[in-house]
Every structure is written in structure tokens, then in C-alpha cells.
């Protein structure tokens, strides 16, 4: 029996991975997601972009969303097909307003150590949306063959 691939257009069909809110655990879904992305023929540039955006989303979930509370969970849902990869990362925090995060590339903020995650996700993914008051980030990368 062949298990049908999750459909990136139908969220209820997605793969789900839940991890605790530490950097070590937050790294775990990456391998599984990149395995699917490679299997569907995404180019190396797209793979780099997905890896980077996923790390930024997970870092934000650990540091800001769940505020370093390792007892909290991060839920990652994803679906990949030959056309696109969709990844949804949800934390258990209080949420935030993405519009309130300042641009880290302005001259006065360039030498700050933090604050580049959202900008990198926006720069590397085709679609980035925040849902559930910012507790959930929805990332899309299209496969340009």
C-alpha cells in the first residue's frame, strides 16, 4: 500500500512533528523536512532557503514565542510536493505583532546582534504569513525547476 503524499493545499493532511522548546530539539524536524524537499527535486539554493527560514522560525519559537521555557512545545507541520514546500511552525507563547519588529538593516540597527530572523524568512521564502496572533508562522517555498 502506498501512503499518499500530504497535499500542501490541504493543511489537515500535513506531516506533524512536535518537539520541546530547546535549540537541540528544535533542530530535529529539519532533517525530515529537507529529506522530503530533496526527494521532490528542489535545487540547492531553495534547500538553503528552506533550511535558513526553518531555523529562523524555530529560533523565534524557542527564544521569543516560548521565551526559553523548555517545558513548552513547538509544533511543526509540513507538506511538500513537486511544486512547493509549506511549513507551519507554532509555539505556545503569547504571540506578537510582526509589524512591530524593526528593520535590522537600517544604519542604526546594523550593529545589533539580534533581530534578523523575520527579515531573513521574508528574504528567502516566497510567502511568509503570521497567524494566530503571531504564534504561528506559515512559510512557502516554490520549486523552480
Amino acid at each position: 500500500m502506498v501512503t499518499p503524499e500530504p497535499d500542501p493545499n490541504v493543511e489537515r493532511t500535513f506531516h506533524t512533528i512536535q518537539v520541546k522548546s530547546t535549540f537541540r530539539e528544535a533542530k530535529l524536524p529539519e532533517g525530515e523536512i529537507l529529506k522530503h524537499v530533496r526527494a521532490h527535486g528542489f535545487c540547492e539554493e531553495a534547500i538553503f532557503a528552506i533550511k535558513l527560514a526553518l531555523e529562523e522560525a524555530m529560533t523565534n519559537a524557542v527564544k521569543h514565542g516560548n521565551a526559553g521555557d523548555a517545558s513548552k512545545d513547538i509544533t511543526v507541520r509540513f507538506a511538500v510536493n513537486a511544486e512547493r514546500a509549506v511549513i507551519i511552525v507554532r509555539d505556545e507563547g503569547v504571540g506578537f505583532e510582526p509589524e512591530s519588529v524593526p528593520d535590522p538593516t537600517t544604519a542604526d540597527r546594523l550593529s545589533l546582534p539580534n533581530g534578523r530572523g523575520i527579515m531573513l524568512m521574508n528574504a528567502y521564502m516566497d510567502d511568509v504569513q503570521y497567524r494566530n496572533n503571531g504564534r504561528e508562522v506559515y512559510l512557502v517555498k516554490r520549486n523552480r525547476k
Binding site: T59, P113, L120
Partner: peptide, 9 residues
């Protein structure tokens, strides 16, 4: 590869 935490370092 480098993420924003690496850039921050």
C-alpha cells in the same frame, strides 16, 4: 550555512 544566531555571534 549560517543562521541569524551565527551572524549575531
Amino acid at each position: 550555512f549560517i543562521c541569524s544566531l551565527g551572524l549575531g555571534a
